[in-house]
Amino acid sequence: MSDARLRRVQKEIRDCAKDKTSNISIDMIDENPFHLIGAFPGPPDTPYEGGYYEVDIVIPDAYPFQPVKMKFITKVYHPNVSSASGAICLDILKDAWSPVLTLKSTLISLQSLLCEPVPNDPQDAEVAKHYLADRAGFNATAKHWAQAYAQAPASKVKATHGKPATDADMAGLAEENVVSFTDMGFPREKVISVLKKLNYRGNNVSNIHESTVLEELFK
């Protein structure tokens, strides 16, 4: 059956190369046809617009009867994508896989996942909390990530005040909130990780008591 697997993957790569309209590319790493890199542009009218997203693709032995393994190489700020590992939470990569789905159609599904996050079934809980609590803040952070990691042009997505994004921007936190704790003498990195964990953003800031933050900082 491995003949069939090879034939199918080669055909999929060929078809995808022929198709100029979808803007999806699938390329081999080295000469191995079972370990590929897929890529697609960030969908328009989303914080990911202008970015270019690369996906690591591993074709399992039982492909196409078992789902293909995909994860983002490009860092993405998205509720259904792990911000650390790039792992993706998407039904068709698991139970809802069907043998007629192709690498191209799966990459298109990833592209539309960027348009429509499913925060109730998150891969990255912290990002999902941010998405639910403060949509504008989430969009800004996702834009910063797109500029920093996915080569999205800064001018097009209107970065805040045109300045390069700070570590607080990248974590989706307000600079004044971070400073209020670093002024107490806590290391900046620690403050950012704690505030991220507590989802210290938007309306939440007034709900989280300072002592809660301090307790976490002292841990």
Binding site: S22, L90, D91, I92, A96, V100, L101, T102, K104, S105, I108, S109, S112, L113, V118
Partner: peptide, 14 residues
């Protein structure tokens, strides 16, 4: 009409 089929490319052509 499933959540996944919305995201899948061109099932009609298949």
């Amino acid at each position: 009409i499933t959540r996944s089929s919305k995201r899948v490319a061109t099932p009609a052509t298949t």
